[in-house]
Amino acid sequence: MCQSRRELTVNLLGKNLLGKEQGVAFVELAIIFPIVLFLFFGTFEYGLYLQTREKNASLSKQLGNAAFRDCVIPPAGQTNDQTCLDDVWAEFGGFVTSNSPDVEVVLSAYRLNGGTVDLRGRAGTPGGVANSRFPGGSNPLSLAIFRRDYVSAMGPFKQRVVVVEVFERYDVRDAFFNVFGNQTIYEVTIY
C-alpha cells in the first residue's frame, strides 16, 4: 500500500526531527542545567550566608548593649573596665559559645585619657581577642588617630566607648561554591 506523499513526509520528518530534538534537548540541558543549579544553590547558599550574618549582627548588638549598660553608662561607680567586661562576658559568654561554637567574640572598652585613648579592657574568646580590628596592646593612641581610624564620636562628651566584634568563618555548605572559598563574617557594634 502506498502512503500518500504527505503522510510519508510527516513520518519521515517526525522521526528525523525527533532524533534531532533529542540531541538538542541534551545539549540544552547540558548548558542550562548547571546554570539553573548554580542559581538555585547559589540563592540558597546566599540565604544561609545572610542568615548567619544576621545572627552575628544581632549577637554583636545585644552583647554591645549589655556591655554598654554595664560599663559605659555608670560614670562614677565603675572604675575597672576590665572587671566590668569580664563580668559581662562571664554572664553571656557561656551562652554564646555553647550556641554558636564557631563564633569568635571580643569586647573592648576604650576610654579617653587626656589627649590619648586607652584600651581599658578586653574580654571574649581567644580567637576574637587575637583578631580584633580595633587597636589593642598597652600603647595608647592619640585621640586624633583614634577618631580618624576608629571612632570619630570619641571626644570630651563621649569619653567611654565599648566595641563588640564578632567573627565567624562561614563554611560554604555546597561544594559547588567552594571555588569562592570560605568567607569571614565580621560584625561590629560601637556604643
Binding site: 580590628r133 576608629y150 571612632v151 570619630s152 564620636a153 562628651f157 563621649k158 560584625e187 561590629v188 560601637i190
Partner: peptide, 13 residues
Amino acid sequence: TTEALVRDNLRMR
C-alpha cells in the same frame, strides 16, 4: 556626637 556614632557603626560595617 550622635551622628558620628551612626557613621562610625556604618563605616565599620
